[in-house]
Design a protein around this nucleic acid. Structure first.
Lengths: 137, 137
DNA sequence: TTGATTGCAAATTGTTTGCACGCAA
DNA sequence: TTGCGTGCAAACAATTTGCAATCAA
């Protein structure tokens, strides 16, 4: 893989944040260094890097894709109001995957877990109530 | 909530399948009974029904929204090749959520788990190799 | 030198919205 | 009768693609 200025910058942005940015967030950041990058380039690189296992594309719920330079196995919490995503380093659920394997005829390759909730900021917006129920599946 | 022909048909489709269809799948099915429904109506109803808790919108990875008339707590396996989604009735991970609660300052409201793999059909497409690695987060 | 990579603009895809009309309650 | 719900078309948002020009190796 050729290490172009653009690709280096994109990787740099991802490695310099813990915020699991979406493609257009990355784009905005990269633009500060390279004012001419195009959004298409950002998308192409994010996918290529993800395909190569250098970064991770988060299959989270709630709309747009998010990217993470931390490719170690860990889970996430997502704020249902503002979309903030934090890491959650829980022990891996290999036993659970083993359990699942008994119940399906799929060839299992992995799993992910996403916790839903409200981040500290959004918990305090007392007025806006927000739906109360649970968000499990 | 007014029970229109359209809404009844949409609910009927969802209750008559185990395939977790996307909006346009539902649309296609409903059209067989009501040739004039519009896709907009299907979207509006799916969201309204989900908001009312009558059905569930699946926060799965891999693009488009999928819908499920089974609102009980259960998990899913998704085929990374064809997108097929099966149910997986594992015991709920309340203990895991308790564990997570200790590690975050989010107010937790739920979680979901998605297993990734290849469905029986896609496992057999020997030629197309497909990426081998694990798909955990 | 040369094929991978880029920027740009246009095309796709999935979903949402404005609005006048229609129908369930 | 009333206003929620509908069909239609147009608007949107996120992402992808075609193509000629560019540049890392």
């Amino acid at each position: 893989m050729r290490m172009t200025r653009q690709r280096r910058a994109i990787l740099g942005v991802l490695r310099g944040t813990r915020s699991h940015p979406s493609a257009d967030r990355v784009f905005a950041q990269v633009r500060e260094q390279l004012p001419n990058v195009s959004l298409a380039t950002v998308y192409r690189n994010l996918h290529q890097l993800a395909g190569a296992g250098v970064i991770q594309e988060l299959s989270v719920g709630g709309g747009l894709s998010r990217f993470d330079a931390d490719t170690s196995l860990h889970y996430h919490v997502r704020c249902i109001d503002c979309g903030r995503i934090d890491d959650l380093h829980l022990p891996s659920l290999d036993d659970l995957e083993e359990e699942a394997r008994k119940l399906t005829d799929f060839q299992l390759l992995g799993h992910h877990v996403e916790f839903l909730g409200k981040c500290p900021r959004c918990s305090n917006h007392k007025g806006k109530a927000g739906k109360a129920g649970r968000y499990s599946q």
